[in-house]
Simulated scan of single mutants.
Amino acid sequence: MDTNKLLLVIIAILLPPVAVFLKSGVGQDLLINVILCLLFFIPGMLHALWVVTK
């Protein structure tokens, strides 16, 4: 695992929407992640980890 991906994983745990934005920009993934984070934090974090590692 390279340094950039490791840093994105750490950001995905702490600030999931920021990690999704850095990985995929503004789009469908970011919208889904913001909605998940507003409802519950854990699903938003899991979605961010999935987006960062795919």
Rank of each mutant, 00 (worst) to 15 (best):
V20K: 02
L7D: 13
M45Q: 06
M45W: 02
D29M: 06
S24N: 10
F41H: 00
L39A: 11
K23C: 07
L49N: 05
L31K: 13
V34D: 00
L49C: 08
C37L: 09
S24L: 09
L31D: 01
K23I: 12
K5G: 09
L15Y: 10
W50Q: 09
F41S: 00
T53N: 14
M45V: 03
P43K: 12
I42D: 05
L8D: 14
W50N: 14
K54W: 05
H47W: 13
L49H: 03
L15G: 00
L15I: 15
L15S: 09
S24Q: 07
I35P: 00
H47E: 04
D2A: 14
F21P: 01
F21E: 11
D2Y: 09
A48C: 09
L15P: 00
L36D: 01
P16H: 08
G25N: 06
V9E: 13
L14A: 11
L22D: 09
L15A: 14
S24E: 14
V9M: 07
P43V: 03
I32F: 02
V9P: 00
V51E: 00
L22N: 04
T53I: 07
V20G: 08
L49S: 04
L31F: 06
F21S: 09
F21H: 07
V51Q: 00
W50S: 15
V9K: 02
N33T: 11
N4Q: 12
I32R: 05
L22Y: 02
L39I: 12
G27F: 05
P43M: 09
T3C: 11
G44T: 06
K5M: 13
A48P: 04
F21Q: 06
A48F: 04
A19V: 08
S24H: 05
I35S: 05
G44S: 07
L7Y: 03
L30V: 14
C37M: 06
F40A: 15
L14P: 01
P43G: 12
L49Q: 01
M1C: 05
Q28I: 10
W50I: 10
L6A: 15
I10T: 13
V9I: 15
L46H: 02
A19P: 10
L31C: 05
S24F: 03
A48V: 12
F41I: 05
I13W: 03
A19T: 15
I13H: 02
L38K: 01
M45T: 07
I35Q: 05
V52P: 01
L36R: 04
N33Y: 03
N4D: 08
V18M: 09
L30I: 14
T3I: 14
G25Q: 01
V34E: 00
K54A: 13
L14K: 12
I13N: 04
D29C: 06
S24A: 10
K54G: 12
S24W: 00
V9Q: 07
I11N: 15
K5H: 08
I10M: 12
C37N: 11
T3Q: 13
D29W: 06
L15E: 15
N33E: 07
V34K: 04
L30Q: 06
S24M: 10
G27D: 04
